[in-house]
Design a binder for these strands. Structure first.
Ligand code: FES
Ligand code: FES
Lengths: 145, 145
DNA sequence: TTAATAAAAGACTAAAAACTCTTTTATTTT
DNA sequence: AAAATAAAAGAGTTTTTAGTCTTTTATTAA
């Protein structure tokens, strides 16, 4: 089990993939995305429908249709993608699964765990989708295999 | 979805609970543990059977039986409990779920994610089960509610 | 040596997550 | 207007995780 759900992993990877293609002004179809990020096509379709409803990605039907991300979308932090899919429990939840995680009712891991959790939060909040386009363009980072 | 599976959360909490009770030389029954950490009794039984087989906790049947943790067990790092239940994917897995996470084939989050992942790894490797007994004794930290 | 106790084991059910397949709707091109 | 294209929506199945219930085995105490 990873930090994010499978659904969330696909969401992030697809968003990076779309952002990368959108940079050159193109729209990209679900088949190409699914193939590009190595995910099940119809499952990814559901995820993108959701992200589309939430305005994180845009879509167009018909010939030359497909998914893309507008200017505003590119500036969104990754945390919004994660929250849209997995909710905010990774940012706020207790490492030991206690119902109420707080300073006054801490579990044994509270302080240390909170620090790590906050770093993940900061990472996802401070980096926008656009931030990754360049490294993808340079071919330094990969989204499949 | 938390960082650990539900099973793993129960495992950690129960181990803390048992360690705490063992400190006073007692054995503690499954009912009391389940109640103390707020987990389903029979589900926890499965988990403890597993931890027992792996030597992380000890158990005794019959009257005055129950679970306890010996000297060696108390000195084990938390990472062993986590690995026993969830495997080592939290310590080694890719944040975006790529099959091979490596320096030469990094995903966009690789460097930042690795740093956070390693902190979690260090935290769990460097703290032993015994390390928490005191804070539990002092009543500072809680395992349920 | 029998009764009581408590974990171990086995065989389930329930819920959630992941994934698939089919039909519908919107858009564009001819 | 008709045909082609591509996402949206709906209705499933499969797999995994979580949780329950019952029976068996081992140990101790009366
Ligand atoms: S109480 Fe567990 S992380 Fe805060
Ligand atoms: S490739 Fe994703 S964390 Fe290393």
């Amino acid at each position: 089990m990873g930090v994010f759900s499978k659904t969330c992993e696909y969401a992030i990877r697809s968003v990076f993939f779309i952002a990368h293609r959108t940079a050159s002004g193109n729209r990209v179809g679900i088949k190409e995305i699914a193939n590009g990020i190595d995910s099940p096509e119809h499952f990814l379709a559901k995820i993108l429908q959701d992200l589309s409803r939430r305005g994180i990605v845009q879509s167009a039907k018909g010939p030359n249709g497909g998914f893309y991300i507008d200017e505003r979308g590119l500036k969104r932090p990754l945390s919004e993608v994660v929250e849209a899919v997995d909710g905010n429990s990774i940012f706020t939840g207790c490492g030991l699964g206690l119902a109420y995680c707080s300073e006054t009712n801490p579990c044994p891991l509270h302080n240390e765990f909170k620090a790590i959790r906050n770093q993940l939060k900061d990472l996802l909040e401070q980096t926008t989708i656009a931030d990754f386009s360049e490294s993808l363009n340079l071919g330094i980072t990969k989204l499949r295999k």
